[in-house]
């Protein structure tokens, strides 16, 4: 039996290898084409160049789109994390009538096709005669990010020992100061995870943004427009590479701080952003 086990685990490891190749296939091609000295995206490769990165750096519409995306993603992260804190706190600490129903509605976007969110906001805007704007995209993104933030923060608040807050009040602090001095520092890793996740979801969200974009495009909407022009595609590969590297750096930093935080609080290391 030992032998059979060994053999089946060998198969599993081989499978994991193939799987990783499949998973990484696009990500591996990305830098290849980003540095490839040809405006056609196909093999064989034609030599090394950095011109596509130079093109990214010198492209005003792209910068504008990137700026818009940053505005949208930062606002979304802040807003949905704030809303998530309220919902998570209410759900983990209090019992009240219709709790399940209310939380259910908040969590619905997690299992709602994004196109429904896009369409429904569009319908309201058109019916009310408003104009499309970045604000609208932010509102839509907050809607789809809040369930994720609520889930992450719910776990953080759940892990918070209630008697710590009671001890603080017992020692003479007000509720507000207790929240600032005890609750916030202890759920900070959760808040950072929530900010980070909602930021990344928003930054990459296309389906809703495309429905609600007016004159100001976000980065994915801009990329969508460029995909139609073959000569622009190598530039997009360079942009994709930059995005990948920047988000990885960001994640590694965040993970570093999370671990440091976990260590000073003597928590068991586990989980990370997941």
């Amino acid at each position: 039996m030992m032998h059979r086990l060994r053999k089946s685990s060998n198969w599993l490891i081989a499978y994991v290898g193939v799987f990783l190749l499949f998973l990484y296939a696009p990500a591996l091609l990305l830098p290849l084409f980003a540095f490839n000295d040809s405006s056609v995206i196909s093999f064989p490769l034609a030599g090394f160049t950095t011109q596509w990165f130079a093109a990214v750096l010198d492209n005003d519409p792209l910068h504008r789109a990137a700026r818009n995306s940053l505005i949208v993603a930062l606002s979304t992260a802040a807003l949905s994390t704030t809303l998530g804190v309220f919902a998570a706190r209410a759900s983990t600490r209090y019992e009240f009538p219709a709790k399940r129903g209310m939380l259910g509605l908040v969590m619905v976007p997690m299992v709602l096709p994004e196109i429904i969110v896009g369409v429904s906001l569009l319908v309201v805007v058109v019916q009310l005669g408003l104009s499309l704007s970045l604000l609208l995209i932010i509102l839509g993104h907050v809607l789809i990010c809040t369930p994720f933030c609520t889930a992450i923060l719910g776990a953080a608040f759940q892990g918070l020992d209630r008697s710590l807050e009671e001890a603080s009040i017992d020692l003479g602090r007000t509720r507000f100061m207790t929240f600032v001095l005890i609750t916030m520092p202890l759920v900070l890793p959760g808040i950072i995870s929530s900010l980070l996740l909602s930021f990344t979801i928003s930054l990459d969200e296309f389906i809703i943004a495309f429905f609600l974009t007016g004159t100001e495009a976000t980065l994915p909407v801009y990329i969508w427009g460029q995909l139609r022009f073959p000569q622009r595609v190598p530039g997009l590969m360079a942009l994709g590479t930059i995005l990948l590297v920047v988000s990885l750096l960001l994640l590694v930093c965040a993970e570093y701080f999370r671990r440091r935080g976990a260590r000073t609080m003597g928590r068991q290391e586990q989980g990370g952003f997941f």
Binding site: D161, S163, L164, E166, I182, P185, L186, M265
Partner: peptide, 8 residues
Amino acid sequence: QNYAVFPH
């Protein structure tokens, strides 16, 4: 009961 010593 669990002392509630502030961990941070």
